[in-house]
C-alpha cells in the first residue's frame, strides 16, 4: 500500500514498514520516529539507523545480540534509545523490513 511520509509517497506494508529501503530519506526517519513516539532523533539514534541500513543492504541477519556487540551501541543504550521494542522500532524508522528472528 501507499503512504505519504514527510511529503513523499512510498510503499509500505500493512504494519507501516517500508517495502523498498531505497525510497527512504533521513527526513522520513524523523516523521516515522514521531509516529513511534521516539522523536526527536539524536545523532545516537541516527548512528543505529545507519548501521541497521548497512546490515540490511548486505542482507545480514539483524539480531539484538549482534547490534549490542557491534560497537555502535550497547544493548542498554539501544533499549534506552528505542523504548518498547528496540529492533522493531529502529527498523521501521530506518526504512528496512521488520526483523524476523527470535533473537
Amino acid at each position: 500500500m501507499k503512504k505519504t511520509i514527510a511529503g513523499t509517497e512510498v510503499d509500505v506494508n500493512e504494519e507501516g514498514y517500508l517495502t523498498d529501503m531505497n525510497q527512504w530519506t533521513p527526513e522520513m526517519a524523523d516523521a516515522i520516529a514521531g509516529e513511534e513516539g521516539v522523536a526527536p532523533l539524536t545523532d545516537d539514534h541516527r548512528k543505529v539507523l545507519t548501521y541497521l541500513r548497512e546490515l540490511q543492504a548486505q542482507h545480514a541477519s539483524i539480531t539484538i545480540r549482534g547490534v549490542g556487540k557491534s560497537g555502535v551501541v550497547t544493548t542498554k543504550e539501544l533499549y534506552a534509545l528505542f523504548p518498547g521494542g528496540p529492533l522493531k522500532k529502529a527498523s521501521k524508522i530506518a526504512g528496512i523490513p521488520k526483523p524476523v528472528g527470535c533473537i
Binding site: 539484538i64 533499549y79 523504548p83 518498547g84 521494542g85 528496540p86 529492533l87 522493531k88 527470535c102 533473537i103
Partner: peptide
C-alpha cells in the same frame, strides 16, 4: 532465556 529476551524485544 529465549522467551524472556524475545519478550523484551517486543517491549
Amino acid at each position: 532465556l529465549i522467551m524472556a529476551n524475545g519478550a523484551r524485544m517486543e517491549g
